[in-house]
Amino acid sequence: MSQETDTIYSTVQTAVADFKFDDKVANVFPDMIKRSVPGYSHIVANIGILAEQYAQPNSRVYDLGCSLGAATVAMRHRIHAPGVKIIAVDNSEAMLERSAQFLDAEDSPTPVETKCADITELDIRQCSFAVLNFTLQFIAPEKRLQTIQRIYDGMLPGAALVLSEKLRFDDPTQEKLLAEHHHDFKRANGYSDLEVSQKRQAIERVLLPETADDHLNRLKAAGFSIASQWFQSFNFASFIAIK
């Protein structure tokens, strides 16, 4: 399947609008995410491996904030437990419409149901594995604990949650250093200084990162018995929590 190159921020914009997951972003998202998030492909591949381990027979697996379905596809490739159904959820109709092109091309016995919904209000049940892959950071901070709690409450014993997020750091020196490394990563992947600057302006008002401790403490507060960071690349990290 052909993929369009991300040039959304390549020309000067007199007023940079807040970032949103619209048709324009959906059309270039695979290129955008690959060139913008260090370690993204590694995280997605390992989500598949973890899903294989934790998916229980006759249960549900949730991809919450599924975008174009990369994590869903990775899980479909690895899940072998019988009776498992993947629920792929996003609140962007543009992203879900384009995700159908990727999911329909997959030959897998594991069924997928897509839902256009707000995950903060989603009914989650009979869940053995869930993924929040760079999703929580776009949810209002005051709704994050209740969202994690909703997931936990809908999980089976022994179920697992993978949470991937952009991080901020309390130490200003560390915050500045890793932000600069992230921008260097984007330049190395072909983005210009203009694109880096304008994308930062667009996203900093809607993506509100937290510290690793914020995430770990919230997971424990929701009731997870184990919560651990398993991956980090610059200021991007992934955590796993076990019920």
Rank of each mutant, 00 (worst) to 15 (best):
D6E: 14
D6F: 12
T7E: 14
T7I: 14
T7W: 09
T7Q: 14
I8D: 00
S10K: 08
S10L: 02
T11C: 07
T11E: 14
T11M: 07
T11W: 02
V12Q: 12
V12L: 11
V12P: 05
T14L: 09
T14V: 02
A15C: 00
A15D: 08
V16I: 11
V16F: 05
A17G: 00
A17H: 10
A17F: 02
D18A: 15
F19K: 02
F19D: 08
F19T: 01
F19H: 11
K20W: 02
K20I: 06
K20S: 13
K20M: 12
K20F: 07
K20V: 10
D22Y: 01
K24C: 12
K24G: 11
V25P: 00
V25Q: 11
V28D: 13
F29S: 04
F29V: 04
F29G: 02
D31I: 05
D31P: 10
M32I: 02
M32E: 01
M32Q: 09
I33N: 05
I33F: 03
I33Q: 03
I33G: 06
K34W: 00
K34M: 01
K34A: 10
K34G: 04
R35G: 01
R35V: 03
S36K: 11
S36W: 00
S36Q: 06
S36P: 11
S36V: 07
V37G: 02
P38H: 08
G39K: 08
G39T: 09
Y40A: 04
Y40C: 06
Y40P: 07
S41P: 00
S41F: 01
S41K: 09
H42L: 14
I43W: 04
I43N: 07
I43K: 03
I43T: 10
I43Y: 03
A45S: 14
N46Y: 01
N46L: 00
N46W: 00
I47N: 08
I47E: 07
I47M: 10
I47F: 05
G48S: 14
G48I: 13
I49L: 15
I49E: 15
L50V: 03
A51P: 09
A51G: 15
A51H: 04
E52T: 00
E52N: 06
Q53F: 15
Q53S: 14
Y54R: 09
Y54F: 15
A55G: 05
A55V: 10
A55Q: 09
A55M: 09
Q56C: 08
Q56A: 14
N58V: 00
S59R: 11
S59V: 09
R60L: 12
R60G: 04
R60F: 11
V61F: 06
V61D: 07
D63W: 02
D63R: 03
D63S: 11
L64P: 07
L64R: 12
S67V: 08
S67T: 06
S67F: 07
L68S: 06
L68W: 12
L68F: 09
G69W: 00
G69V: 04
G69D: 00
A70E: 08
A70P: 04
T72P: 02
T72C: 05
V73R: 13
V73A: 14
A74Y: 01
A74H: 01
A74R: 03
A74C: 01
M75V: 08
H77I: 01
H77C: 08
H77V: 05
R78N: 14
I79N: 02
I79V: 08
I79A: 03
I79W: 03
I79P: 01
H80T: 15
H80D: 13
H80C: 07
